[in-house]
């Protein structure tokens, strides 16, 4: 069938296997301790960074559709943005003919962190042990070696994940720029992780609304709470339907791929931040505390929104533009 949005068996198997790996190595509760750095080895062993690369480049030959939905699972587990950086860095290396580098990143021997361009110097997310940074700036993505770089410690938002600031930059002549299609893929996967955040925040809030009792009843029985939960579900459904459209268009090189990804990028941070906010609110006092996980989703949504390169949606042709009418 040429029109079918049913998840394939392959996809379900990948996601089931990923769930086991994520539950083992990246339970959300790991982030209750400040300054965490996620190891990249379990992700590399899973084949994360080679999943959608062509088989002759050492990849598994799956498509960006499977990869995007895998990154939704990463988002649910609030996996370090390094996972996103490495998936993209492997492609940048391949495009540049640096097969050795691509293989090293794919196997997890070479690790890459995300660097978010900022006025006082790029902010490196979880940089410990990494030798490359994927720099995200308004003008695109650059893979940059970190040898010779000097970094200053930074206290991250709410004392969360480990972060430094790049104070001196290495020689830019060794930098590798991402192609437009690769940068678009980065947007797709980043938005997929934001969907994961929105989904995780929804599930946590719904679980809490079912168990927490006030006035002798679960708070989720009250419309004031259940309607918040419904709104979180609507956000998730909108974003996830759009992710499918965008991922399929990207895989197929469809005419509307840029439009679908730009629309996705417009929605993703908004919905993730809103669901994270609502999730905290539904938790009440405990939601405001560092002991509950609700706040972790909010912080990760803020990190990822700055990893997202949003395009100019209005400048792109719309797939559903009306036809010009012939005069009567």
């Amino acid at each position: 069938m040429s029109f079918d949005l049913t998840p394939t068996d392959d996809l379900r198997q990948i996601l089931d296997a990923a769930q086991t790996m994520l539950d083992t190595h990246y339970p959300v509760a790991r982030l209750r301790t400040d300054g965490q750095t996620d190891p990249m080895e379990p992700l590399a062993e899973f084949g994360t960074f080679l999943l959608a690369l062509p088989e002759d480049a050492g990849g598994a030959g799956f498509s960006v559709v499977e990869e995007a939905l895998l990154h939704v699972s990463f988002g649910r587990h609030l996996v370090s943005p390094s996972a996103l950086a490495m998936a993209i860095a492997a492609r940048i290396a391949l495009d540049a003919g640096r097969d050795d580098l691509a293989a090293g990143i794919g196997g997890g021997q070479i690790t890459v962190c995300t660097a978010i361009a900022a006025p006082d110097g790029p902010l490196l997310c979880e940089p410990a042990g990494t030798t490359y940074a994927l720099v995200v700036a308004d003008d695109g993505l650059t893979l940059r070696p970190l040898d010779g770089a000097t970094q200053a410690p930074v206290t991250s938002m709410g004392h969360g994940r480990s972060m430094t600031r790049l104070t001196a930059l290495p020689d830019p002549s060794t930098d590798l720029r991402a192609k437009v299609e690769t940068a678009r893929l980065h947007t797709l996967l980043c938005a997929a992780q934001l969907l994961g955040i929105a989904t995780g925040a929804r599930d946590l809030a719904v679980d809490y609304a079912m168990t927490r009792e006030q006035f002798g009843r679960p708070i989720g029985s009250f419309q004031a709470i259940k309607h918040h939960c419904a709104d979180m579900a609507i956000g998730v459904e909108m974003l996830s339907a759009q992710l499918d459209m965008a991922a399929i268009a990207a895989r197929d090189g469809a005419d509307d791929a840029a439009f679908q990804i730009a629309a996705l990028a417009c929605l993703a941070p908004r919905i993730a931040l809103e669901n994270a906010r609502t999730g905290i609110q539904i938790h009440g006092g405990i939601g405001f505390s560092a002991e509950a996980d609700a706040q972790l989703y909010l912080k990760q949504a803020h990190v990822l929104r700055h990893c997202l390169l949003a395009g100019d949606l209005l400048s792109l042709p719309a797939p559903m533009a009306p036809f010009e009418r012939q005069p009567a």
Binding site: M238, A241, C266, L314
Partner: peptide
């Protein structure tokens, strides 16, 4: 732009 993105998502939901 936000409204255009949401309209795209509504179409995506119709597809789904």
């Amino acid at each position: 732009a936000d409204l255009r993105a949401e309209a795209a998502a509504i179409r995506a939901m119709s597809y789904r």
